[in-house]
Design a protein around this nucleic acid. Structure first.
Lengths: 187, 187
DNA sequence: TCTTGAATAGTCAAATTTAACTAATTACAA
DNA sequence: TTGTAATTAGTTAAATTTGACTATTCAAGA
């Protein structure tokens, strides 16, 4: 058996939890996993193909998943992954830990807000109105997404969370732009 | 003059905007910049010391900032940075672009929510209550932070945004835990 | 039937990011 | 006065991440 201590360590993060989780319900091949992440989880997590493949390799080295290759017609061979018993145990441990865990929310877009006073009032207002419009569109998209029937329970739940956050961002921005329009904040 | 085209390109992101922005009001040395980020911007952006130094070097190579060294007693020499004219122009351009810009909110903590059904109902509820408690504490911290007088206008504004988002997360989680407690969701 | 685009399955060089380290000075409590 | 922690100012080796690339197959329209 391979010496686990000499292996590059596994990060204890959401990405590992995601990959293990996707394999609990069924075996999947690499392309399938990446496709699911791209199509269904665009709002939930940012995980690129190359990173996923690298993590899958590492999970296999740690024996949390196992793979076998499958040929389909003349297609390139697929590497199909399944969860091992250790993998399933690890998944449950990670899941409990991360569900319990709470972390500071760091979201993009705050630095420009922080320095917005450096922009002339008119230009500032124009820019913020544009951001507002885009944000409204984003909320509309996510609302429609949530109605799609192909969203399974869990994905729906986490999408609902993101929507709640995005709506809050919208409300906050609306309020601020309103103040600016009524001239309440301009010095 | 150095050939800018052969230089490693500058990312157009929040970090660059932040460093330039911190130098608009005053000259600052490296330590001062990193100290400010750590103390005041912990909620706003995640930028580590080493990354900041690397970006400062690059900004200087691109002539957006200039530096000179200063000796204070027997202390290690400080490298003091100031914004150049090009730097100021670039700052305003970046600022307008980023204020206008809207980006999907990807926040940590959603993957465990997505898979929470895999946990026995009792354990799930315990874990979520723990997360709720921590989240309440986080909101309390941020509310107190917002009252501190040393927060300047801009920092206050962006902190208020984060607080709005964190509160939304809290409300969402409260609602969900409530449903679970009343047994509305358990299958 | 020919072309175009999507599906399929990755790999790899290059850029980015950070944890850990170095090293001197000063302030302060014990 | 002695130890300890904070201030000061970075550097670097190592890990992580990703954009760009390679190739083949299949489906469907022109």
């Amino acid at each position: 058996m391979t010496d686990l201590t000499s292996l590059p360590p596994l990060p204890d993060d959401e990405r590992v939890l995601l990959l293990l989780g996707l394999l609990t319900s069924q075996e999947r091949h690499g392309y399938e996993i990446n496709d699911f992440i791209e199509r269904q989880l665009g709002c939930v997590i940012d995980l690129k193909k190359a990173t996923a493949y690298q993590l899958l390799d590492r999970l296999e080295q740690h024996a949390l998943i196992a793979s076998h290759t499958v040929q389909h017609g003349a297609r390139p061979t697929r590497k199909v992954y399944r969860l091992t018993e250790e993998g399933h145990a690890h998944f449950l441990k990670l899941l409990a830990a991360q569900l319990r865990h709470e972390e500071i929310l760091i979201v993009p877009g705050s630095v420009s807000i922080m320095f917005c006073e450096h922009l002339p009032a008119a230009e500032r207002l124009t820019a913020l109105r544009e951001r507002l419009t885009k944000l409204e569109a984003r909320v509309a998209i996510q609302e429609r997404l949530l109605e799609l029937p192909e969203l399974t329970g869990g994905v729906k739940l986490s999408t609902a969370r993101i929507l709640a956050l995005t709506r809050a961002d919208l409300e906050w921005l609306r309020g601020w732009v309103g103040e600016l329009e009524r001239g309440e904040v301009v010095p």
